[in-house]
């Protein structure tokens, strides 16, 4: 991880660090890359991934519609809204 990669990463995650924060972040990432080396020592060749700690299957709902929330309530905390829409700076195509 170098400063340029870090800038890309900041951009991707909509964050902007100060130069001092970047220095700390680079040190943090260096330590984490050492973590990855440590993890690489563990043989996981024939180990199945575990996404869910208490696995179940087919947790599904039936196709029934309901509409309990009002638009006014949902928009009430919007910084900017207009005519029942959230409003943002114009998105250029």
């Amino acid at each position: 991880m170098d400063r340029e990669t870090l800038l890309d990463l900041e951009h991707l995650n909509q964050l902007s660090l100060t130069p001092q924060e970047q220095d700390e972040m680079l040190a943090f990432f260096a330590a984490r890359e050492a973590d990855w080396e440590t993890l690489a020592q563990i043989d996981t060749e024939n180990v199945e991934r575990m996404v869910h700690v208490r696995p179940m299957v087919n947790v599904l709902r039936e196709d029934v519609a309901s509409q309990p929330f009002s638009r006014e309530d949902l928009l009430a905390q919007a910084p900017e809204s207009m005519d029942g829409y959230w409003q943002v700076p114009q998105i250029l195509q």
């Binding site: 196709d63 029934v64 519609a65 309901s66 509409q67 638009r71 949902l74 005519d83 029942g84």
Partner: peptide
């Protein structure tokens, strides 16, 4: 209804009325 919540599947409605 929608895929992960119970809102009505109908995007033609008045804006933001089929939302949660």
């Amino acid at each position: 209804s929608k895929i992960f919540c119970s809102c009505t599947n109908g995007s033609d409605a008045e804006p933001n009325t089929h939302v949660c």
